[in-house]
Design a protein around this nucleic acid. Structure first.
Lengths: 209, 209
DNA sequence: TCCATAACGGGACTCCAGTTCCATTAACTC
DNA sequence: GAGTTAATGGAACTGGAGTCCCGTTATGGA
């Protein structure tokens, strides 16, 4: 690797026109490859060919496969779907679980998540981007648990973020470690389980945590 | 790749002595690299150097990085820890969750799991090995939920396998998508949540599933 | 203990991902 | 709309991953 952060990254001073088109073409080509073949087959020279873009440009702007995947995640993070409020914890968690399920079940987006998770295993920057992404998502949804606490649906002292994570966790587990279908029933089950566990006080913060 | 399945794989006819030593050295070197640098930095030529083994041998027997990681998983699968029985669902699930937690928190084993999950995203054989591994583990632990059902701790019709998966899921989610510590408290929380959700009937099979 | 051959290992070779250099193109500024 | 220079892209280059060939080693069976 040679195109490290010298002065300012390319694409930051004149981000419009051609630069934006190149970025869009490269990200799109990368997403195609991920969906078709997975992260291991992501090589920058091939991406450049598919995107009909100079190989030099791809190496200069993204450097490595993990860098490209990281940018892809940041790009996806832009389109954040706003949280819905249904009036009950189960309803809110179900909405969240179904959103996650639809995202992961989508071939392109699901493949992207697998790729970022794979990349995060070796690349600290990818890991940081991934953690940041989930922190933001969890933070976005945590209030629904706090509202549920105010309504008396869950005990006081319940760790709201942990409840949100517990809702997503079974879906990721399915995606990554099983061949089982990631359907709406799985989402509803995850939401139901998280709501029941929260109501039973499983996520009440203990002293010293 | 060229060393595809021709007739019989090397190492099958004379698996003793040198062949076994080579395998042990290569797997050990691979585990070192995984723990130190992650899956992306796993390259077979480097492994051969570290293991002080001919490069040709490594390519001939494992072919690719994903093949090597798959073999590493199969090797680990040999040492299966027997299930313990505590007499209560919460006790059994806690035992399971702590076992998973200790495994994932261990640098070498945790890195291996990350690597296999990464490999499974691109390589069908790795995916198959991974799915098989978890199927076996889930099958091993499922009886404890059935016993709980017999004792009346959970409703009849509860999907035992799903309860076991629900116990592990939050731990994998933590490992892969957050920077949060994977400690015993996380394991206990996962077990508690799964037990509570199961008792509340969250894993009762619906009609048509 | 001896033999047939499975498995290993060194070395030369190939090919392409990743780099470097520089000419060309086209954003943004005034 | 003219000039500055950020950003792109072609072309030549290079290092090392992955392959191939063949001689050497030592396993497992008789």
């Amino acid at each position: 690797m040679e195109y490290t952060e010298g002065e300012s990254d390319p694409g930051t001073t004149r981000p419009g026109g051609r630069t934006a088109r190149v970025r869009a073409a490269v990200l799109s080509a990368a997403a195609d490859v991920l969906a078709e073949q997975g992260f291991a087959h992501l090589d920058l020279a091939d991406i450049a060919r598919r995107a009909e873009v100079g190989k030099t440009t791809v190496y200069r702007r993204w450097g490595t496969a993990t860098g490209l995947v990281t940018d892809l995640l940041l790009d996806m993070a832009q389109q954040s779907v706003p949280r819905t409020e249904t009036g009950s914890l189960l309803g809110d968690l179900t909405a969240n679980a179904r959103l996650v399920q639809r995202t992961l079940a989508d071939p392109r987006q699901g493949a992207l998540f697998k790729a970022v998770i794979a990349a995060a295993g070796s690349d600290p920057k990818a890991a940081e981007a991934l953690y940041g992404f989930y922190t933001a998502r969890v933070e976005e949804w945590a209030p629904c648990v706090e509202q549920a606490a105010a309504r008396g649906e869950v005990p006081g002292g319940t760790d709201a973020r942990e409840v949100i994570r517990a809702t997503s966790a079974p879906l990721y587990y399915r995606l990554l470690t099983t061949a089982l279908p990631l359907d709406e029933a799985a989402a509803d089950r995850a939401a139901h389980a998280a709501a029941a566990a929260a109501a039973a006080g499983a996520y009440v913060r203990k002293a010293g945590t």
